[in-house]
């Protein structure tokens, strides 16, 4: 309930989202964790994309390129898995 109240009073309550506590005075790790989360959620990407106007033809090109890349990566991943497949009961003996 407390959180609901806070959200109602403020659309963007600070120090709730995108916040990481620093453990053992390790600022570097905390910073990296924040950046990692931002990168994974696509926030940094969106920030960079909206710095300058992207013309529609550029958007089309970018999206098409992303699609091609995703298809290629998926197939390549499958290929690698196929080449690396192991037909033994324990795939990597002595490595567990």
């Amino acid at each position: 309930m407390f959180l609901t109240l806070r959200l109602l009073s403020n659309r963007h309550p600070s120090f709730i989202a995108r916040t990481v506590f620093v453990k053992n005075n390790n600022v570097d790790d905390a910073c990296r964790l924040v950046n990692r989360i931002l990168g994974k959620e696509g926030i940094l990407e969106q920030y960079r994309l909206t710095r300058y106007y992207e013309k529609p033809f550029q958007t089309r090109r970018r999206v098409n390129h992303e699609r091609c890349k995703a298809i290629y990566n998926e197939d390549m991943e499958r290929k690698i898995q196929f080449v690396l497949r192991k037909n033994r009961h324990e795939p990597f003996p002595g490595c567990s």
């Binding site: 910073c31 924040v34 931002l38």
Partner: peptide, 10 residues
């Protein structure tokens, strides 16, 4: 430093 918050406007 207790916590680090990102407040980039996106």
């Amino acid at each position: 430093i207790v916590s680090i918050t990102d407040n980039t406007h996106v």
